[in-house]
Nucleic acid binder design. Structure first.
Length: 796
DNA sequence: CTATCACTACTTTTT
DNA sequence: GTAGTGATAG
């Protein structure tokens, strides 16, 4: 068997092994502190950079790579850098390019998942795998599991889709496949054996569909390397410098992958014509490994991240050097003091104290709203004030613990005419019509993917109902063929002439598109499919406004396929699909579009903003209810809080609500324990939890039942204003509905009445059509900007 | 085969 | 409060 690595240059000469590196240009070291400098310059087998939040680790990492290139210690193709998001990868590439120019071409800088897809696609054919395998996202995995549970009627045993999906994911992250699980499984337990059966069928289902789920991408690469040392050797020889960012969030499979990559190459796997320097025994020395991380920012235990990977790095690599970066270049001292104080309550950590020379800065501003809407209104008002004062919306971010918290924020932001974005939350690719269109594309690339075909069988409606589908499926099962092949045999199945014709048309179209899958531009294939299925025109024909929106979304998808081709002139459909599948929430952030970002704390990791709003700081939300039962849960939530706080450069806001509705009913919320861990003098409460209660009164209320013991929310200097009457009235009167005023027009001087703010006078109108915004001076509520189309207003 | 209505489980975080 | 499911009628 021979393995061809397209694009791989043969083994490069290695001018020096891991020797001295005194030649690194001073230019690359400019402005670094002694520890950062050492981290850039150190040469050796293994390096751990413990990088506190905001300690300039990206700078260190990029300069370290630039140094390797600049001194010719490494060719670009010998470098593999793993980042957490595609966006981070792109930024790192750009920064290195800025330092060393075109020498930056040819490096692998990508996420674990992207790197593994690349490896798997290159090696697939040698193992009888399809190089055009598709990637199942969580929703696809769940759909498959759901089907299996139904088949087995396993739901009676208490197996739910989410429990099974979670468990399989965990097992895969531990590199346990169905068969190795079977060896240790307790088959006497009916639930256990049912789970095993589901796991087996799930794995078979993926294999039959030529699909990998997210976890497979990593695990299968590890299996590949372990089963075929000569394949692993290709990459071990190629990547002489492996660098991993956010190492504290690697799981076992990712850890194993790294271990495989930095193994020495055995003499039998060294080609005779290698130009790489050999050891005395004819082997090639292991690659150099650099990992960067901060155990205080480990927030992905739920998906298998193992903090021990970083904590025990020195045990794994006894010769490892550890460098600690503690100086923070991002935040003010007040922000750091708050962060340090809170994280100090995690007992099993190695002490680390962030410091800065920036100065104390502003105090943290605290606000307790009566409801989530009130809280959101506070955030919107503050953002508007800061914007007026000259801070760009791009420099502000609102953090939430759970996705559902974005809703009230969105409602208020829309009403306040504040442009916002929810990276990862828009879920463009999760909309039904987009998933339909994607299913067409997937089925074109990968005809084995039954799940994709089943999804579009009757979309748009073509009269193929459940009964017809069952007939087709039965034929496929009988013949042991994919559903797509069964469609081609439709004439033999004795279905009605109408249905038969519809199926023939569909399968001919798919076959035609598949014929072009490897060559045509993704946009052309997409256009062909939409044209011939009439999906978009069908949506346009209905008078439903939602269908019109769906048609627009499909147009947007078409635009995206075109944009993709612009970025990647040779890009094929399969690459487009891969990109989409591996898109991370943070990849969607555009920091130049003039909007505020609302995101989860998890998405916020690795980012920084001038101004940060940390919202929903309540017991049950942060720490989340669900974490209470898990070992280490409360500590992990504390790290999440810490991550949120340390994102802020200059201004930090803490907010919470006194009542929050979930599940349809409203419950009283208590301030988070983490709030009490922040020294009281660091927070200036605009409205403190101690002085507001859910009815808007001003009686002190119990704070975690510790009201009288030195009440940490009473503070001498900055007494909170007692909640004033107007505020209270509008705070709870906010309705959840977004309304539509049609084409109501307003002009300067008009008087209006607003459902929440009362009466006011229009002082200016900007923007066009449905986006026009009125600036209104309210008699009691002050100046507000309102989106005329949807604000709850009437002209007087 | 499709449309409508009632019912229930659901919200942790993500590649 | 709602998305997704399942039963029933058209």
């Amino acid at each position: 068997m021979s393995f061809v690595l397209d694009g791989f240059e043969p083994d490069h000469p290695t001018t020096s092994s891991f020797g001295g590196s005194s030649e690194v240009d001073e230019r690359l070291l400019a402005g670094l502190n002694p520890q950062q400098r050492e981290a850039v310059l150190y040469r050796g087998r293994a390096l751990l950079i413990v990088a506190g939040a905001g300690s300039g680790k990206t700078s260190v990492l990029t300069r370290r790579i630039a140094g390797l290139l600049d001194t010719r210690e490494a060719w670009p193709s010998q470098i593999l850098a793993i980042t957490f998001t595609n966006k981070a990868a792109a930024e790192m590439r750009e920064r290195i390019h800025g330092l060393v120019g075109d020498a930056a071409q040819g490096m692998w800088i990508s996420t674990f998942h992207s790197a593994c897809v690349r490896i798997l696609r290159r090696q697939a054919e040698a193992f009888g795998l399809s190089p055009s395998f598709t990637i199942y996202d969580s929703a696809d995995s769940r759909a498959l599991i759901k089907r299996i549970l139904k088949e087995l009627e396993a739901d009676t045993l208490g197996l739910t889709v989410s429990s099974v999906a979670g468990r399989i994911s965990k097992l895969k992250n531990e590199l346990t496949d169905a068969e190795s699980f079977a060896r240790g499984a307790n088959v006497d337990d009916p639930k256990e054996s049912a789970f095993l059966e589901v796991f087996r069928r799930y794995s078979e289902g993926l294999a039959r569909a030529k699909a990998f789920d997210f976890d497979d991408l990593i695990a299968q690469t590890v299996y590949l390397f372990r089963a075929f040392p000569e394949v692993a050797a290709l990459y071990q020889r190629r990547f002489r410098y492996v660098l991993v960012d956010e190492y504290q969030d690697t799981n076992h499979a990712q850890y194993a992958l790294i271990r495989e990559l930095v193994r020495a190459v055995k003499p039998q796997n060294v080609p005779a014509d290698t130009r790489t320097r050999l050891e005395a025994d004819g082997s090639i020395a292991p690659a150099s490994l650099t990992v960067v991380g901060d155990s205080d920012q480990s927030i992905y235990a739920f998906r298998g991240a193992d903090i021990r990977n970083i904590v025990e790095f020195e045990r794994d690599f006894p010769e490892a050097k550890t460098i600690l970066l503690e100086q923070n270049y991002r935040s003010t001292q007040n922000i750091l003091d708050a962060a340090n104080a809170v994280i100090g309550n995690n007992f099993d950590r190695t002490a680390k104290n962030l410091f800065t020379t920036i100065g104390a800065g502003d105090k943290i501003t605290g606000y307790t709203g009566y409801s989530a809407h009130d809280e959101a209104q506070f955030v919107a008002d503050e953002i508007d004030k800061l914007r007026t004062a000259g801070t760009s919306l791009n420099d502000m971010a609102v953090f939430v613990r759970t996705n559902s918290q974005t809703r009230p924020l969105e409602e208020i932001f829309i009403r306040s005419a504040l442009p916002y974005r929810i990276p990862g939350g828009t879920k463009f690719f999760e909309r039904a019509e987009i998933k339909d269109a994607m299913a067409y594309l997937i089925q074109v690339v990968n005809p084995a993917d039954d799940l994709a075909l089943r999804r579009v069988l009757n979309v748009p409606r073509r009269g193929i109902g459940p009964a017809t589908e069952a007939t087709l499926q039965a034929h496929a099962d009988r013949e042991g063929m994919p559903l797509r092949d069964a469609l081609r045999d439709v004439e033999q199945l004795g279905l009605g002439p109408k249905v038969t014709g519809a199926i023939r048309t569909l399968v001919d179209l798919l076959d035609e598109a598949s014929g072009q899958a490897l060559t045509a531009a993704p946009a052309d294939i997409f256009a062909l499919l939409m044209e011939r299925t009439g999906y978009v025109t069908g949506l346009r024909a209905t008078r439903d406004a939602q269908d019109e929106a769906r048609a627009e979304n499909l147009e947007e998808l078409l635009a995206q396929t075109k944009e993709f081709r612009k970025q990647n002139p040779e890009g094929t459909l399969i690459e487009f699909l891969t990109n989409v599948a591996l898109l991370a929430a943070a990849d969607e952030i555009d920091d130049t579009d003039g909007s505020v970002s609302i995101m989860t704390l998890h998405t916020a990791k690795g980012l920084e903003y001038d101004t940060v709003f940390l919202t929903g700081i309540e017991e049950g939300l942060l720490p989340h209810q669900m974490s209470a039962g898990e070992p280490g849960g409360v500590q992990e939530e504390r790290r999440l809080f810490y991550v949120g706080v340390t994102r802020a450069k200059r201004r930090l806001f803490f907010s919470l609500a006194m009542q929050r509705s979930q599940f349809g009913d409203t419950t009283v919320a208590l301030p988070s324990r983490y709030l009490q861990e922040v020294p009281a003098e660091l927070i200036e409460w605009r409205q403190s939890p101690g002085f507001a209660n859910s009815r808007g009164g001003s009686q002190p209320r119990a704070l975690n039942a510790r009201r009288d013991s030195g009440d940490r929310f009473s503070y001498g200097t900055s007494l909170p204003p007692a909640p004033n009457r107007e505020k209270r009235e509008w705070a709870n009167a906010v309705t959840a509905k977004v309304r539509d005023n049609g084409d109501l027009t307003l002009a300067t001087g008009d008087r209006i009445r607003h459902a929440d703010f009362g009466e006011g006078r229009v002082t200016g109108v900007t923007g066009q059509g449905p986006k026009s915004i009125a600036e209104v001076l309210f008699d009691t509520a002050g100046r507000k900007k309102l989106l005329i189309k949807i604000a709850p207003i009437e002209k007087l």
